[in-house]
Amino acid sequence: MPKEKGSKVVATNRKARHDYTIEDTYEAGLVLTGTEVKSLREGRASLVDGYAFIDGNEAWLDAVHIPQWGSGSWTNHATRRKRKLLLHKAQIIKMSQKTKEGGYTLIPLSIYFSEGKAKVEIAVAKGKREYDKRQALRERQDKRESDRAMSTRSVRGE
């Protein structure tokens, strides 16, 4: 079987960028069972309620929904089990120190395949307040309106 090239995104957590301010991102490997990999290759996963945490010297991903593989039998996996993250010790220490500061949490941003291996992008993030969310939304709308006005002006040739 030829080796896979490039990357393929399986699932993204779009709500995370709205609800959190992203400080740092890390790429981590995932320890998965065979049926989990097959289900991910079909493009089925949900990161909506997912989070990561540090337990001792290990990083874990929890509450990420990877549905059972359709052709699996008794070998199928639990859909929302804890999955170990593969990170360097220095990265785990950095993330642990940041989360102990207070107000910071570890959230998954996306699951993807890179060179045939399942990876997850983990972010050290701080929760946004409601007014921060409204301000970001207002800025995005203002930018969209200004871009729209600029494009109509350039179309008319002014």
Rank of each mutant, 00 (worst) to 15 (best):
residue 63 A to L: 10
residue 64 V to L: 01
residue 65 H to F: 08
residue 65 H to S: 08
residue 66 I to T: 00
residue 66 I to C: 03
residue 66 I to W: 04
residue 67 P to A: 07
residue 68 Q to F: 05
residue 68 Q to H: 05
residue 69 W to C: 05
residue 69 W to E: 13
residue 69 W to P: 00
residue 70 G to L: 10
residue 70 G to Q: 11
residue 70 G to K: 15
residue 72 G to A: 15
residue 74 W to Y: 13
residue 74 W to A: 14
residue 74 W to M: 14
residue 74 W to G: 14
residue 74 W to F: 13
residue 77 H to F: 01
residue 77 H to L: 02
residue 77 H to P: 04
residue 79 T to K: 14
residue 79 T to H: 08
residue 80 R to F: 00
residue 80 R to S: 02
residue 80 R to I: 02
residue 80 R to A: 03
residue 81 R to F: 00
residue 81 R to C: 07
residue 81 R to T: 08
residue 82 K to N: 13
residue 82 K to V: 01
residue 82 K to I: 00
residue 83 R to P: 04
residue 83 R to Y: 04
residue 83 R to M: 14
residue 84 K to N: 14
residue 85 L to C: 10
residue 85 L to W: 03
residue 87 L to Q: 07
residue 88 H to F: 10
residue 88 H to W: 07
residue 90 A to H: 12
residue 90 A to F: 15
residue 91 Q to Y: 06
residue 91 Q to K: 06
residue 92 I to A: 03
residue 92 I to T: 08
residue 92 I to D: 03
residue 93 I to P: 00
residue 95 M to E: 07
residue 95 M to K: 08
residue 98 K to M: 10
residue 99 T to F: 04
residue 99 T to H: 03
residue 100 K to E: 11
residue 101 E to H: 10
residue 101 E to K: 15
residue 102 G to Q: 02
residue 102 G to Y: 01
residue 105 T to V: 13
residue 106 L to K: 02
residue 107 I to P: 00
residue 108 P to W: 00
residue 109 L to Q: 02
residue 109 L to W: 04
residue 109 L to S: 02
residue 110 S to R: 15
residue 111 I to L: 11
residue 111 I to W: 07
residue 111 I to T: 02
residue 111 I to D: 06
residue 114 S to F: 14
residue 114 S to Y: 12
residue 115 E to C: 06
residue 115 E to R: 11
residue 115 E to W: 08
residue 116 G to C: 08
residue 118 A to S: 12
residue 118 A to F: 06
residue 118 A to G: 07
residue 119 K to W: 07
residue 119 K to S: 04
